[in-house]
Write a protein that binds this DNA or RNA. Structure first.
Lengths: 115, 115
DNA sequence: CACGTATATACGTTATCGCGTATATTAAGT
DNA sequence: ACTTAATATACGCGATAACGTATATACGTG
């Protein structure tokens, strides 16, 4: 499977990652919690493992899967400029609201960014 | 096409969005800049438009496409808890480094950085 | 109105993904 | 050793997405 973006495009995989956010989980737990058949879980876990998004430790017959979120940094990195863009718009809106004849000028709450 | 995640899973679409980050672009520009055949561009733009990621204004025969990044907030929202997680690890590492052969033991609860 | 330019869509093909069912593997308990 | 539990894999299938080629639509210019 190609990029991290394709990996997280799958809803079930996102669900699994979301569940693992709470704590590590056995395959059976994931199966029960998310209500998907066991082979499906295992196969998605395989994909996630190959992508480096999870890793497993063996607890007898169980495998406990936990998050390894390093690969998500690529998504974060890709998203960053877009986030900058919309916070730029936010700032513009703030500036606009500040200049609107407002008897109570914005103060106190939310410290200025880049003072 | 389903979720925003599937939309941005496609490399060419991410390329288009990346290009639009600079400024609005005509279809022909995208075609030249990214070196993909025109129908491909148009079809991806169609998908992006349906997803609300992009909107076009007509300039004679050209269509100028620009970003509309609202839908990306969903990605941002999904990513947020994971980001919190790895910055938590960062903080833990920092705390650890602070206490490493540091003659001044950790006493004040959070010696916040950037006072 | 004919023509070139710019963009959109239709169609057929190919590749891949996710699923379900069945089976293999590995460890535990008796 | 036999059995049960837990997880992994193999195989065939149906859906869908992306692509290339060809064609349609809309606009501007002579």
């Amino acid at each position: 499977m190609g990029s991290i973006f394709e990996i997280i495009a799958e809803p079930n995989r996102r669900a699994i990652l979301g569940l693992l956010l709470l704590s590590q989980q056995s395959v059976g737990n994931i199966e029960r919690e998310l209500g998907m058949p066991q082979p499906t879980v295992s196969k998605h876990l395989r994909v996630l493992r190959d992508a480096g998004l999870v890793e497993a430790s063996v607890d007898a017959q169980r495998r406990l899967y936990r998050l390894k979120l390093d690969p998500l940094r690529e998504v974060e990195a890709w998203l960053a400029p877009f986030r900058r863009m919309w916070s730029a718009h936010m700032d513009a809106l703030e500036r606009h609201l500040e200049t609107m004849d407002d008897p109570t000028p914005p103060q106190g709450k939310a410290a200025r960014r880049n003072p």
